[in-house]
Design a protein around this nucleic acid. Structure first.
Length: 257
DNA sequence: TAGGCCATCTGGTCCT
DNA sequence: AGGACCAGATGGCCTA
């Protein structure tokens, strides 16, 4: 694990050197001579900030230096954003890697992730989602067993935690839904799907018939732990379902920052 | 060498 | 208006 993580950090550091070259916009004051310049930088000059199709609005006149400075700021923000995203992804990996390594290769999505290798982003996300679904179904099963036990003992709500017994276990569907009940989740299911990133990929397979209609239903359905094909379930033709069962619900509004 | 994965740049759109 | 978010393009690195 440490190897994986340190390797990740090293590689990230190595690759975080922005592309730069003569006349290009870069944040680092030092730029390796002969560094390969992204051809797009040549094709799309920075001054296009000025003449974008969006320029219907009156744009403030900017000197080339100001435009360059603005572009630097924007690039820097974007880089920071992506680095933060990667930090979060690493944190998620750290949680998922032990789980991933404990399951057989055919059980994790990760077609390209042999054991011992860092989980790719897509593998990490798919694995995390499956893990959450498993927890959901385990919880469901636990409730059922507790119900049977308490009925057999002639106890309605004794030592059994009320929340658990009543099915009121807090289910988290999003930052704004930290304490929702089962029922409220179901009623709000269409608007409480995952992030917009997942939503964007979901748009490609809205007609997928092999996936459940909503997040709650998905969590209640039995979880398949393998890539499609190993379970005997015919694979969905869409690109996402090839990776795992995936909920193609309509995209949710963005979470506020 | 092809393909997968990734970081970065960039322009567009949406939100505050 | 400025920032956040997104997706396309591009090129580098790594592995089979």
């Amino acid at each position: 694990m440490m190897n994986v993580l340190s390797n990740t950090a090293a590689r990230a550091q190595e690759q975080s050197i922005p592309l730069c070259g003569p006349g290009s916009v870069h944040d680092l004051p030092h730029c390796p001579p002969g560094f390969v310049l992204n051809s797009r930088l040549n094709a799309a000059p920075l001054l296009s900030l000025h003449s974008s199709p969006r320029a219907a609005k009156p744009q403030k006149e900017l000197s080339p230096e100001e435009q360059q400075e603005l572009r630097r700021k924007i690039n820097s923000r974007e880089r920071k954003r992506m680095q933060d995203l990667n930090i979060a992804m690493d944190a998620l990996r750290e949680v998922m890697v032990p789980y991933a390594s404990s399951s057989s290769p055919s059980h994790s999505h990760a077609p390209g992730a042999p054991p011992g290798r860092r989980l790719s982003k897509i593998s990490t996300l798919v694995l995390a989602r499956n893990y959450i679904l498993l927890l959901g179904s385990s919880l469901q099963e636990m409730r059922r067993l507790l119900g049977e036990v308490s009925i057999g003992m002639g106890v309605s709500t004794g030592p059994v935690p009320r929340l658990l017994f009543a099915g009121g276990w807090p289910l988290i569907a999003g930052p704004r839904q930290l304490l929702l009940t089962h029922e409220s989740l179901i009623s709000s299911a269409p608007s409480s799907s995952s992030s917009s990133s997942a939503a964007s990929s979901s748009s490609t397979a809205a007609k997928c018939a092999t996936v459940p209609p909503g997040p709650m239903e998905a969590s209640l359905a039995p979880v398949h732990w393998s890539c499609v094909g190993a379970t005997g379930v015919p694979p969905c033709p869409c690109g996402v379902c090839r990776l795992s069962r995936f909920n193609h619900s309509k995209s949710a509004p963005r979470f506020s920052k």
